[in-house]
Simulated scan of single mutants.
Amino acid sequence: MPQEDLDRPSPHVALSTSCLFLAEPPDSFRVASELGFDSVEVLVTHQRMTQLTHQLQDASQKYQVPISAIHAPTLFFTQQVWGRPWTKIQMAAKMVEQVGAEVVVAHPPFAWQSKYGRSFVEGVHTLSEMTGVKIAVENMYPWRVGGREMQMYRPHWDPRRFDYDWVTWDFSHASIAQVDSLEAIRELLPRLGHVHLTDGHDGGTSDEHLIPGQGEQPVAESLRYLAEHDWQGVLGVEINTRSAKTDDQRNAMLAESLDFARTHFRPGPAGPATDDHAS
């Protein structure tokens, strides 16, 4: 093997439990192990097991796949999980400590959570400082109804506008917002705490979470940029596999995403992006 290949940075790639929607969490650990993922990102949902540290640790130990990230239940459909908004992030931070993960992924508040939204930026910083846990706020997007954009997140859907200590970058969300992810990642690099590896069609209204390389975002170029700059975070594969009719089809989608990460997370030009992503 050439020395330059030995010296290449190797990405740490996690499988998000959201990729196996409605499956029991142990299935995610089993699939991650079988396909060669480095770890699992746990999305906390209404499924009881996603909330139970000891059961997650049992699955992690059984399949010898660690947990690298905890996605707090701050999604629209998890509003009833773990009660109050700050409780969600506090409990996610506690779970990170208990399972030995690296980061909490959190969405910004919804527009109707006005009090929570006003204190969010400072509150996240304070909680991270108190716990020592990396809390990475995820980029979201404007909602579009009847051709009009609606601001549905407080203080905003774009975390670049604020001094969060850490940010999670999601390519599918960037596609809806029509944000150039390579440009954003260059700007965020010193505080980029986590990446959701996926894709989407720019300017759409649906959060597609496509296999990376099947949309219009500069995903390959962004991964090369991160490798060139020795980024040490986790690439969390978070794709929508609900179109798969069989487990084999689903696993093929996940394997393709993993291979994409391994292929493109390599040193390359750190300058302007080349237009070699799918359109």
Rank of each mutant, 00 (worst) to 15 (best):
M1K: 13
E4M: 12
E4D: 14
S10D: 10
T17M: 09
A23R: 08
P25M: 01
P26C: 11
F37D: 04
F37W: 04
V42M: 01
V42E: 04
H46V: 08
Q47A: 09
T50V: 05
H54Q: 14
L56G: 05
Q57I: 14
A59D: 08
Y63H: 14
Y63N: 08
I67A: 00
I67N: 01
I67L: 03
I70L: 10
A72R: 02
T74I: 03
T74G: 03
Q80V: 13
V81W: 00
Q90T: 10
Q98F: 10
E102I: 13
V103W: 05
V105Q: 03
A106N: 12
H107W: 05
F110N: 11
Q113D: 11
G117C: 01
S119E: 15
V121H: 05
G123V: 12
E129Y: 04
T131M: 03
T131R: 08
K134M: 13
A136D: 07
N139I: 06
P142E: 10
G146H: 10
G146P: 08
G147V: 05
Q151F: 09
M152I: 05
Y153W: 15
H156D: 15
D158C: 03
R160V: 11
D163S: 13
Y164E: 12
Y164V: 09
Y164I: 12
W169R: 02
W169S: 05
D170F: 02
I176E: 07
A177W: 10
Q178E: 15
S181D: 05
R186L: 07
E187G: 11
E187R: 13
H194W: 08
D202W: 04
G203P: 01
H209E: 06
L210F: 10
P212F: 12
E216F: 07
P218W: 07
V219Q: 02
L226I: 00
E228G: 14
D230W: 06
D230K: 08
Q232G: 07
G236W: 00
E238T: 07
E238A: 05
T241K: 01
R242F: 13
D247E: 15
N251F: 01
L254Q: 06
F260V: 08
A261W: 02
T263E: 14
T263D: 06
H264Y: 15
R266A: 15
P272H: 09
A273L: 07
